[in-house]
Design a protein around this nucleic acid. Structure first.
Length: 476
RNA sequence: GGCCCCGUCGUCUAGCGGCCUAGGACGUCAGGUUCUCAGCCUGAAGAUCGCGGGUUCAAAUCCCGCCGGGGUCACCA
């Protein structure tokens, strides 16, 4: 049987990295078994809808390379793939349950519900619906319905029944129905709740594996109950551990949990994000393995997903980013870098490529390129504090001065000639290279951390090099 | 609070009764690199396997209790 999994986000904002990991795991699982990855938009909460977030969700999938097989934009045999376009279905099934006596109308107002909840909490009881409307007579229900009174449809949850399933990740889990409220299936606005919609859609879309975060564990019995009520074969469930923020609570916007798009903006490679997310809860070999999506598909399996919650570790992300940057072909890296550079970036063509090459092993983040190569901007000026630190000593200044003189006489501004000139002056001075080179670096390249000195000077050009040296010598 | 789950170096983890005086990785630190490092090389520190009991010739691994952490209990998903 073909594996069919789904990623079912709600367009209530831009998903953070934990949500995207859910998509990744589902996609990897599907692809590992040559199955289908379905994207379904769960927009049944009209109040929390955020315009534009649906597009962002898809953009994230695109950026990460998680191509879906079925979705609202790609189509598929079981559409529509947006829940708000499937309202009639949910209503039909909800009423079917009513007819079969497995669900009932509830006319209680939100105010009444809030009140009884409050009272129960005050008494230390589990907040639970008191089934007031379950005991309404048929006539009373009819009457209320006819008078147009607003209603919801609730599932009749059995009183004391163990619901258990063998979770693909967590092992056997059993939850007794005393802990489960009579779930609302259809809201008074005619929209289904998550529980109803998810079960109907997963069944209709032939989803046979549900992989989601463990915040859904306690909802699973509700879903199982619904499958039972409908007489449908339930899918297999797997709940993976939640990603925790640095404070060890569930990763959320509250932590400033960012989206994939934010990380891209900050200079992270999609490849690095994928690699990083994969290891959040899953492991393979030494879990510092640099893996592409392709390899991940090959190696991914549920048995290596742990049960304990991993903590989001920015340094690990940085590590993966660094490693993936290094593995990028130069032309590709140059291409990716463009997005972070201003349009008037001074270096172009071969010189730019060479600079990229010099910086590649030194970047943890694509944005590092900007600071590493700040010297290419003609108008940039060195900071005084750096200058005084490295150019203070009189003997260093002397050598720098004479190097400046010599460089002025260089005709062909090439790496060998620059190197030769400087080396010759160094030998004459007898000073240690460290001191002088740092002085030159700061004076010419503006910052104490740069790509290799000679190469950078060669790329900078004669004119700017001399100009910078003059400025440095005069200002100090 | 009820219910469910989890608990091995700071972090991610390996471990599935003897190969464990607990392995790797990220990070940290130190030394080196006769040019910087956010680069490269080498090395080090770091976990009484949450605690306490059991079972066993033998336990990080099995059982029980406790403690700690997380999740969840909406006309949100």
């Amino acid at each position: 049987m073909t594996v069919r999994v789904r990623f079912a986000p709600s367009p209530t904002g831009i998903p953070h990295i934990g949500n995207s990991r859910t998509a990744l795991f589902n996609w990897l699982f599907a692809k590992h078994y040559q199955g289908k990855f379905i994207v379904r938009i769960e927009d049944t909460d009209r109040k929390r809808l955020v315009p534009g977030s649906q597009e962002k969700i898809m953009e994230i999938l695109d950026v990460l390379g998680l191509k879906e097989d079925e979705s609202y934009r790609r189509g598929g045999p079981y559409g529509p793939y947006i829940q708000s376009q499937r309202l009639r279905l949910y209503q039909k099934y909800a009423h079917q349950l009513i007819r079969e006596g497995k669900a009932y109308y509830c006319f209680c107002s939100p105010e009444r519900l809030a009140k009884i909840r409050k009272e129960q909490q005050k008494k230390g009881l589990i907040p639970k619906y008191d089934r007031h409307c379950l005991h309404l007579s048929k006539e009373e229900v009819e009457k209320k319905l006819r008078s147009g009174q607003k209603y919801v449809i609730r599932l009749k949850v059995p009183d004391d029944k163990d619901i258990s399933w063998s979770d693909l990740i967590q092992g056997k889990i059993t939850i007794n129905t005393v802990n489960i409220d009579d779930q609302i299936l259809l809201k008074s606005d005619g929209y289904p709740t998550y529980h109803l919609a998810v079960v109907i859609d997963d069944h209709l879309m032939k989803v046979n594996y549900i992989l989601r975060g463990s915040e859904w564990i306690s909802s699973t019995p509700k879903h199982l109950l619904l499958y039972q009520a409908f007489g449908w074969q339930p899918p297999k469930f797997g709940h993976f551990p939640l990603i925790l923020g640095p404070d060890k609570s569930k990763l959320s916007k509250r932590h400033g949990a960012k989206s994939v798009l934010d990380y891209i903006e900050e200079g992270y490679l999609p490849e690095a994000l994928v690699n990083f997310m994969a290891f959040l809860g899953w492991n393979y070999e030494d879990n510092s393995a640099i893996l592409t999506l392709e390899k991940l598909v090959k190696f991914f399996d549920l048995s290596h997903i742990g049960k304990s919650n991993p903590i989001f570790d920015r340094q690990k992300l940085d590590y993966f980013n660094r490693e993936h940057i290094r593995r990028l072909p130069l032309t590709e890296l140059a291409k990716r870098l463009k997005r972070y550079l201003p349009a008037d970036y001074p270096l172009k063509g071969d010189k730019f490529s060479r600079l990229v090459e010099l910086c590649q092993p030194r970047m943890t983040n694509l944005k590092n390129f900007l600071s590493l190569t700040e010297f290419v901007y003609p108008q940039k000026i060195v900071e005084i504090k750096d200058l005084t630190k490295y150019l203070k000593a009189a003997e260093v200044r002397e050598v720098v001065k004479s190097i400046r003189q010599r460089l002025a006489k260089v005709d062909k501004w090439t790496l060998p000639s620059i190197k030769g000139t400087i080396e010759k002056e160094m030998k004459r001075s007898g000073l240690s290279r460290g001191k002088v080179f740092m002085a030159l670096r700061v004076a010419i390249l503006i910052r104490p951390v740069t790509p290799p000195l000679f190469e950078s000077i060669a790329l900078l050009g004669k004119e700017l090099t001399l100009q910078r040296l003059d400025v440095a010598l005069n200002r100090n």
